[in-house]
């Protein structure tokens, strides 16, 4: 297990955070996810880590519909700061919305995923996030996602 890999996940839904942690636990990567409850917490965590010259996460996964700082707002913040703009961001939403998909693409998100409906799919998602950090997995391009949606 590579201890340097950290994935920062933001979701306001406590059950979703629990499910996600559970999935990482199941694939023996319980130390990888850093779960926070909204966009503000994402920015707080990053600035603190940056200030302490810590290691920034390899991937940020954002829920879209969050109070205070939504997924898209957080994405915009991240991409506007030199220190964070190179961190890949994946949008992890409960539904497909082509308008939001376009917006996220324009704001510089790497990909857009719909939250899984089954346990197995959650395990797979967690694995993909981790593998991506090790450059063992690539997520589909936005254009193909949008076309599929159509």
């Amino acid at each position: 297990m590579d201890n340097t890999v950290k994935i920062l996940l933001a979701d306001d839904d406590v059950e979703d955070r629990f499910i996600m942690q559970d999935a990482f636990n199941a694939i023996n990567l319980s130390e990888v996810p850093l779960l926070v409850e909204d966009g503000e917490k994402v920015l707080e965590y990053l600035s603190e880590t940056h200030r302490n010259a810590g290691i920034l996460p390899s991937l940020v996964v954002l829920d879209l519909n969050m109070p205070r700082l939504s997924g898209t707002q957080t994405l915009r913040e991240l991409k506007s700061r030199d220190a964070y703009k190179d961190i890949p961001v994946i949008i992890f939403s409960s539904s497909l919305n082509v308008i939001e998909m376009h917006e996220c693409k324009q704001l510089g998100a790497l990909s857009y995923m719909v939250k899984p409906f089954t346990y197995e799919e959650y395990l797979l998602s967690a694995q993909h996030f981790y593998d991506f950090c090790l450059k063992k997995h690539s997520f589909p391009e936005f254009n193909s996602l949008i076309n599929n949606f159509k």
């Binding site: 839904d13 519909n65 409960s94 539904s95 939250k115 409906f117 089954t118 346990y119």
Partner: peptide, 15 residues
């Protein structure tokens, strides 16, 4: 968003 979210949970938990 709001209708699909609880449905997804039900789907997940029942699965």
């Amino acid at each position: 968003h709001d209708l699909q979210e609880p449905l997804r949970k039900i789907a997940y938990y029942s699965d």
